[in-house]
């Protein structure tokens, strides 16, 4: 019966579009909405004891302690992630621009080189940086002669921010490159013809057209960076820990699922809010090409 109805529906074509959507919908439901719902429920639960199953009892206290106890860690995470994002734009944009405009026949190779670090595990790359920046490394010992023997790079906020910038740099370069690549650079001739300087043409034409790439890149860097904990773990100190460290510890060491869930939800909500504000601010609407 049911199969019969289905074929009828399909023949009429009324449900066919929804049918085509279903893999995506099922995916979203199964791997995003359901887990988030479970997470949200867990965040409002209490655990009578450590290894007991949490019971759902509208425990909003998990949220108030998320702010009161970990507010400063949240702020630190967003400051680090934000700084890393800005640095990634400042370094990644000129690089992507250079490859897109001057790469010539080497373009694909150069973009390949940007991706190459991904072939190595993220963890190993981070640990490699902790070796490169170690206190007795020539780089640091040289700088110590300038800034005094107490100078160090590791276990400082800048080491963590640098690690985040480095590790997520490709996520910035690739979308910017793609949007630059789509730009018809003859537009700069048009601008020059109308009296604009090279910088003016870049600022008024090329930059606005590449903003969708900058926007995408910023999200791809900021979101994972805000939740990251490996860089803080391997390049930082107890005073530079990020919210990811706390969530990881709450989940895996302390088995405090409700608190961990509440922290995750707060992180998610704040990031979503920031993304909305950011997209409003960048006004992606007018950028459709």
């Amino acid at each position: 019966m049911a199969a019969d109805d289905d074929t009828k529906g399909l023949r009429k074509g009324r449900f066919a579009p929804y049918g085509l959507l279903s893999p995506g919908v099922i995916w979203l439901l199964l791997f995003f909405l359901v887990p988030v719902a479970i997470l949200f429920k867990a965040s409002l639960s209490t655990k009578p004891s450590r290894f007991a199953t949490p019971t759902f009892d509208w425990a909003w206290g998990n949220y108030s302690s998320a702010f009161s106890q970990y507010g400063s860690v949240f702020v630190r995470s967003f400051v680090y992630a934000g700084t890393a994002t800005v640095l990634a734009i400042l370094i990644g944009y000129p690089l992507a621009y250079w490859i897109a405009t001057r790469g010539g026949r080497w373009k694909n190779l150069l973009i390949g080189l940007v991706v190459v670090p991904f072939f190595t595990s993220y963890l190993i790359r981070t640990i490699a940086w902790s070796s490169i920046l170690a206190d007795e490394n020539p780089l640091v010992t040289t700088l110590q002669q300038v800034f005094g023997s107490d100078f160090r790079i590791l276990a400082t906020p800048w080491a963590v921010i640098g690690g985040l910038t480095y590790n997520f740099m490709s996520f910035m370069i690739l979308p910017i490159y793609v949007s630059l690549e789509k730009i018809d650079f003859r537009l700069t001739e048009a601008a020059a013809d109308l009296g604009s300087t090279t910088w003016g043409a870049f600022r008024k034409v090329v930059l606005p057209l590449s903003l969708p790439g900058v926007f995408a890149g910023s999200l791809l860097v900021f979101i994972p960076a805000a939740g990251d904990y490996l860089n803080a773990r391997y390049l930082g100190s107890p005073k530079t820990s990020m919210i990811g460290t706390v969530v990881q510890n709450k989940f895996l060491v302390q088995f405090d699922y409700p608190q961990a869930a509440a922290l995750s939800i707060v992180l998610m909500v704040i990031i979503t809010a920031m993304v909305l504000v950011y997209s409003k601010f960048l006004g992606t609407e007018g950028l459709a090409v």
């Binding site: 791997f31 359901v34 479970i38 997470l39 904990y229 990881q248 989940f251 895996l252 869930a261 998610m268």
Partner: peptide, 18 residues
């Protein structure tokens, strides 16, 4: 330490409870 941390990295995803 290495693998523990790498596996831990996945844990932040909300999917972990499921």
């Amino acid at each position: 330490t290495g693998t523990g941390a790498a596996v831990g990295g996945l844990v932040i995803a909300p999917g972990i409870l499921a």
